[in-house]
Design a protein around this nucleic acid. Sequence first.
DNA 1: AACCAAAACTAACAATTGTTAGTCTAACTT
DNA 2: AAGTTAGACTAACAATTGTTAGTTTTGGTT
Lengths: 189, 189
Amino acid sequence: MKTLNRKDEILIVAAKLFKEKGYSAVTMRDLATDMHIKAASLYNHIESKQAILKEIILSISEQFTEGMERIIKLDASSIEKLKKVIRLHVKITSRNTNGMASLNNDWMHLGDQLEYYKKLRYNYEDNFRQIIQNGIDSNEIKNEKLDVLLFSMLSTLRSLYIWIPKKEDINIEELSDSLSEILITGINK
Amino acid sequence: MKTLNRKDEILIVAAKLFKEKGYSAVTMRDLATDMHIKAASLYNHIESKQAILKEIILSISEQFTEGMERIIKLDASSIEKLKKVIRLHVKITSRNTNGMASLNNDWMHLGDQLEYYKKLRYNYEDNFRQIIQNGIDSNEIKNEKLDVLLFSMLSTLRSLYIWIPKKEDINIEELSDSLSEILITGINK
DNA sequence: AACCAAAACTAACAATTGTTAGTCTAACTT
DNA sequence: AAGTTAGACTAACAATTGTTAGTTTTGGTT
């Protein structure tokens, strides 16, 4: 395990603040106060406020991209793949709930890197859609409106960052299984 | 239908901007530019920036509260009530997608009215949970983890504001039915 | 034509913003 | 002991922020 350097500490504290108030409402002085240093000292470790956001969001985005690419290569049924996607979200989110808030709510402030982020996001959604479409084609999944299906699953998975921190001792396996049951099998008796 | 006065126009334009960049990143000069007036002129119609946010968020919150109170009084099955809640979300959201963005992402900047908002929100969730719980008790709904169930449905419904504007000509009835099918019946074949 | 209210304007303010330059300090390495 | 460096500091900047005060313009009603 890499030891935490000063820059990583800043990223962690920043993500916490960004979650609480949003990127734009957090000042460099707020961040400095929570780091117990002065604002100017932050610049010994980071280039700019925007660069902090960039690192938080893109590192997570790339984890999703890698995870998804691993899953679509698998030789498995569509339902199995969907379950793996669900687990991917639970795993990444539970490891970094604060960063997920920035990814969901502050991506529009990325500046330079905005287009790159949007590309990653679009590709991810497209792979997700493809898995569902394959499931419909192979008769594993109900032929419900594809877009509504995708939207519903993504909404739930993307909101996990709000919900996970509220539950004490989340078990990743258990939560993934519950979500699979609800998202895939439904709630009707 | 009440005619649109200048203040309402400001609220509409503000909601659009708040959705695009978030409340904190929108300046009064941004808002004024889009209204084709100067920033100072805004204050002939509104008291403050925060008051704009307050009106946007609370008016929607109260629509949800009223709708929910109507539904829980109904003499209907839990599944029927859930379907009505889904329709309530689709209806309110499609009427005001921009405002829903503020409600979801900028409630923490409400200041004075923050506690009132949180109370409305908490009560709403509690009524929602109660409907599901009743459904489990009466054997209409699978005894899945209650909290995960509630979280999953709420996440999807709260994210509608992102998704609805992307679809051309949404039919409220049709979308509500699709969502009911997916959220309640599941996707498994 | 005179009047009035609504709604625009100009000018300015005090506070806050992200960031830079230059300096000091404490802790390792030699 | 001397030297080096990471990481803190103070001071300041130019730009931007929400907002106020006071004035002018506009369009409708008498």
